[in-house]
Design a protein around this nucleic acid. Structure first.
Lengths: 139, 139
DNA sequence: TCCAATACCTCCAAAGACTAGAGCATTTTA
DNA sequence: TAAAATGCTCTAGTCTTTGGAGGTATTGGA
């Protein structure tokens, strides 16, 4: 039942203190309890919530997408019809990201390999990322 | 040898016109030629460049990371030592992203499945994204 | 060829997501 | 219990992107 100060939360999740307060302001984080002196004290669950937000942001999800993740997570018992489309949308998005990243991984690995051999890579990072559909189908 | 106006580029790459001008301002895009009247005219290569920027941004890469991709791509013949660390750093980053996204994919798929069966998912989207190392090792 | 309609130009401002600092209060720890 | 560390609010700034105002180019018909 330990409680965390905002600074401890910040260190644990690698999120700057003002950013945590900002997330509270835009209602991504529930307002935590306060000490008699007015300082924030977070329950352990806030740690998980915040680090999920940080990772999702890092992966390129918008604040709104994260809001949807949170809503989905908070209402696993909600009518399926409501969740179905949102889930599917995000799943498609995630699959696309994975594909692009895997293509990028291939290219970066190839660059490293040709480096190993002292050879010059015909660098295709840009082409891989530019995603004319060849990239998806021809690799 | 066709040339594109900024509007055509915008449509093709799904990047807003002011955003294209902004990318030029911060030197992510080379300043294109101009007509006698002062309007921008882009070579076909700009199309590829811009769409790579758009995709990389979408995947969550920072402007600086993209600058590095461009630099790497522009100098495939540069000394390997210079590129090696940068490449490896990005490769690690890409691998981490892929892992996180795959975990997320698993969870979203599970949600959809339990929806199919009219059952209630024990939704773990948040936990998956919060990435205490269990997620990497226990799945 | 001329003339709307459309697209473009620059410049300025604002929105979204943070980040930093000033000035003061609370907590911790030596 | 006093000094150091951390926290509070509020304001202002950055970065990336988007929108609008006011004016100029380009273009597709008549």
């Amino acid at each position: 039942m330990k409680e965390y100060s905002i600074g401890q939360l910040s260190k644990q999740c690698d999120v700057k203190v003002p950013t945590i307060r900002y997330y509270e302001e835009i209602a991504l984080l529930d307002p935590p309890g306060r000490t008699a002196g007015g300082q924030r004290r977070y329950p352990p669950s806030a740690l998980e919530r915040l680090s999920m937000i940080a990772h999702a942001r890092d992966l390129g999800f918008s604040i709104d997408a994260i809001r949807e993740f949170i809503r989905m997570s908070n209402h696993p018992t909600a009518p399926c019809v409501d969740l179905d489309k949102i889930t599917e949308k995000h799943l498609n998005d995630v699959k696309k990201r994975i594909k692009k990243l895997q293509a990028l991984e291939t290219e970066l690995t190839a660059m490293l390999k040709s480096c190993d051999h002292g050879q010059v890579a015909d660098c295709r990072i840009l082409q891989v990322l530019s995603d004319h559909d060849q990239c998806q189908t021809q690799h």
